[in-house]
Design a protein around this nucleic acid. Sequence first.
DNA 1: ACAGCTTTGTTGTCGGTGCATACATTGTTG
DNA 2: CAACAATGTATGCACCGACAACAAAGCTGT
Lengths: 213, 213
Amino acid sequence: MYAPTTKLSTTTSSARVLGVPPYHHGNLRTTLLAAAERSLREHGADQLSLRELAREAGVSHAAPRRHFPDRQALLDALAEAGFARLDVELRAAVADTPETFGPRLHATAAAYLRFATRDAALLELMFTRKHRDGAERLVAAAAAPFGFMHELIVQGQAEGVLEAGDPQRVGIVLFATLQGIATLINGSLVAPELLDGIVETAVDQFMRGSRRS
Amino acid sequence: MYAPTTKLSTTTSSARVLGVPPYHHGNLRTTLLAAAERSLREHGADQLSLRELAREAGVSHAAPRRHFPDRQALLDALAEAGFARLDVELRAAVADTPETFGPRLHATAAAYLRFATRDAALLELMFTRKHRDGAERLVAAAAAPFGFMHELIVQGQAEGVLEAGDPQRVGIVLFATLQGIATLINGSLVAPELLDGIVETAVDQFMRGSRRS
DNA sequence: ACAGCTTTGTTGTCGGTGCATACATTGTTG
DNA sequence: CAACAATGTATGCACCGACAACAAAGCTGT
């Protein structure tokens, strides 16, 4: 086993300049993931085909197998990346927000639903139960955004805006509400125009429902 | 076009007694749906195969096509039936409950999550966005349980337990919260043992968050 | 520098699936 | 009882995911 090649696509070769594609792609895994992400967004997980991705990347149909043992492994990797990106987006949303709980909660909720409605298929992938043993990686990736919610709740309690209590439970309920709203919107069961109003209602209810009284 | 044969499997024939299977199945559509429901529960929507169902029903692999133009049509039918059953179960849950809002809300939430965790794959199917034009039937079917939630909210407001306001919005938020909790549990992102506690927290928060103050 | 091992491609194949078309059988109805 | 509509069957196609055997390229120790 040699080093997992951190440096990208050096692909030695003199062949490159001649326009002859090198035998080794050099960066297949990343290329496949990027193509998969696009395909997922455009056509949904069901339509995603390994062979199709291979064609797009200009490699043989069996090449992806070297990087993803099977189709599900690719989907899992996408979901994992999705959680990471969600975490980044949530944290970015509060970065330029007053440090008080209220505005931060609003910003978080809005950011979550922006992510969820923009990448509906990805969201579905992230939360779909695909038992597959290696689910640990996924759960670990999901811990990041969950942790963020947790921190938010703790802050609210520290500020005295929220009642004391198990922040875990409360955080889960909050997370669930946002996720549920996304599901209803994405499933076309609720008109998208209602989104903003619903989020506002949800946030208000949450504040009132768990404020210190 | 002759009558859509309400009476089941009369399959005229003298052949029956001889053990020779009749040319016409007599009840294929229903049989397929039943088998599909079982397969869905046991192996998930991805693994559901029309050819497999045909084999189970003892019929050629092209036969299902007479009843479902394509695979998605079958899945849609399953989802539609799912909404109908959900509606029945929710209404049944409050049937033998005190007529006051509080107990009814609790019973509804519990019933929703029982349904959702018992038939996780079905739930996913019901709320997954499969744009496919004929989504109207699905949305119509979904209207039943949604309507139930709506009625529940209206009752709460009439009792004076809930503040006045758009029952639609509030109902959607409630529905979303339950749906979101189900998603988190089914996706193994939250341990099942926590379910009861979370539901309780959610219901309490809802009551506090929208009670008349 | 080169021999040997590891990684990452390639080609070919297999079983399975959804969808389509042409044909066969049966039930209904005028 | 003679159309005709409904429902199954047989066959074929294109595609897919998985697998195995082989080939090229990169690394590494001597």
